[in-house]
Simulated scan of single mutants.
Amino acid sequence: MSMELDKDAHKAALDSLEKYLRDELELDVGNLEIAGLLTFFVQEIGPSLYNKGVRAAQEQMQARVADIDMEVYADEFGYWKKSPRRR
């Protein structure tokens, strides 16, 4: 699966990465280098984060499916249980 950011997220990520490099590491890096670094991060690390999200979603869905019997369960043959006087 191809990892890509949409246009707005890509721009925000570039701005954030540039600010981090400048403010935290005191590096003055050009836009082309920043874009290359972002592309590397997205392609190299993105799939791991994506897969982690998929696993978390699968776990959530499996937990919900496991609990579905409690949500939609109906007691069977309960007519005689409702009134102890009936025989």
Rank of each mutant, 00 (worst) to 15 (best):
S2C: 06
M3T: 08
K7P: 06
K7F: 15
K7N: 15
D8I: 06
D8V: 06
A9I: 09
H10Q: 13
H10W: 11
L14E: 15
D15N: 01
S16W: 04
L17C: 12
L17T: 09
L17I: 13
K19D: 09
L21T: 02
D23C: 02
L25A: 09
E26C: 04
L27K: 02
L27T: 05
L27S: 11
L27R: 02
V29H: 03
V29D: 09
G30N: 09
N31H: 07
I34K: 01
A35H: 02
G36T: 03
G36W: 05
L37H: 10
L38Q: 05
T39W: 03
F41P: 00
V42L: 13
V42A: 12
G46Q: 06
G46T: 07
P47Q: 10
S48Q: 06
L49G: 06
K52R: 05
K52I: 14
G53E: 12
V54W: 05
A56W: 02
A56E: 10
A56M: 04
A57S: 11
A57T: 11
E59L: 05
E59A: 10
Q60C: 12
D69E: 13
D69P: 01
D69C: 03
M70P: 00
M70W: 08
E71L: 14
V72E: 15
A74V: 08
D75E: 14
F77Q: 04
W80K: 00
W80S: 08
K82A: 14
S83G: 01
R87A: 15
